[in-house]
Design a protein around this nucleic acid. Structure first.
Lengths: 208, 208
DNA sequence: GAGCGCCGATCTGTATACATATCGCAAGTG
DNA sequence: CACTTGCGATATGTATACAGATCGGCGCTC
């Protein structure tokens, strides 16, 4: 099946938002965007509507879309929801992962402790193995959605704070131990601690 | 702001799906639907795309939308995700609700135990009070989405099984006691039991 | 009878035109 | 100077036309 233009535009705009190149409140006008891409408004409209459905765009003045803004309360709810869902997934994963998967997780934690590692990539793989280990596509999908919505705020935490890498490594190892012990409740607790720590750093960075 | 035609069509089609008047696999063709409503394809397209984004429609033959179908595995993931999220919300609610809200919950449970009550409506209000009590708009929104997706399968459980009402009443009371005791972990457990019981009934009804 | 290929019907995708809703700003009035 | 009103510019909403992708079914061959 051919790739639809609207889907391509959606992915392009999504990446700009997630990378921070489009900021909350930035205009996502149909006409201006259509001109930028040299297309008619139709696929642009669909892409913008998808972004809105995904919680990444909202209507501003004159019904024109803008990148979704969030006040403090909304951000806190979003981060809390993400944290609680990651913890839920960690608990299920601790109970359901195969031995091979647990070893893969251990290897990723070890890799994350090597000097000069791309920690953001390692962190992503760590969370990805847990998600797969939870054995629930719906939860995984929900987490993808929430994760995407927090990206504009979260990406900076490792770049801006070198000491955050060190504490994250320790948190990963604590969670790994819970997983290797097949202790769902402990995995749940460790993930909540890990996510709470990430949220504190992000809160400081964005001035909450 | 005027109500958009596309939004009205979305709500109409959503209601048909949720009420079971449109079944999984039923066609949602653009042209046929446009003719039914006497409109052009444009607002119909948008409404169908919103349904797809909400997980209620999917592309079938020739890229035409149909009501979303789910196999056993997907249904199980969906119900498990819903159950776990309701339990998460129950735990937060047990810790965060005001005394007034706890009393309102108690009143709803008592009302649900009266003879001849519309139990489906009472059940909805019971869950709604808990959602509000969790103090997290994002979790509430996620639950709304999941809830909407399970409606085609879940609505029948009270109608088809009179004894399910009795057991649900007992489950509600057990959860209420956890909430009145401000015991988040117990509320969490009780809600998971409640949702697991609902899932068993629904599984039997739909032949999983 | 089974399998393969082709064609026409059936869909959606996108472009564009027209209608109109939604403001922002300027002018007038108190 | 502040407030209100009206108008024009700027957006989107919807209708419709055209292009083409996606099949299902039929006919032919082995």
């Amino acid at each position: 099946m051919l790739k639809r233009t609207a889907d391509q535009i959606y992915e392009t705009l999504l990446k700009r938002i997630v990378d921070g190149n489009l900021r909350p409140g930035d205009s996502l006008g149909e006409q201006a965007t259509a001109e930028e891409f040299g297309l008619s408004r139709t696929p642009i409209r669909e892409a913008l509507q998808r972004l809105s459905n995904a919680g990444l765009a909202e209507r501003g003045s004159r019904r024109a879309f803008v990148v979704r803004r969030m006040d403090q309360s909304e951000l806190q709810d979003l981060f809390e929801a993400l944290g609680e869902l990651e913890a839920l997934v960690a608990r299920l994963a601790a109970l359901r992962m195969t031995e091979i998967e647990r070893h893969a997780l251990r290897d990723v934690v070890a890799e994350g402790e090597a000097p000069g590692v791309d920690y953001e990539a390692v962190n992503a793989r760590f969370h990805e193995i847990l998600r797969r280990g939870a054995r629930n596509a719906m939860l995984s999908s929900l987490l993808d959605d929430l994760h995407r919505r927090t990206m504009p705020w979260r990406g900076a935490q490792f770049r801006a704070r070198a000491d955050r890498v060190t504490s994250s490594q320790a948190e990963h190892r604590a969670l790994l131990e819970a997983v290797l012990a097949k202790d769902g409740d402990l995995a749940h607790l460790r993930m909540r601690e890990h996510m709470a720590a990430s949220m504190r750093v992000v809160s400081e960075l964005i001035g909450i």
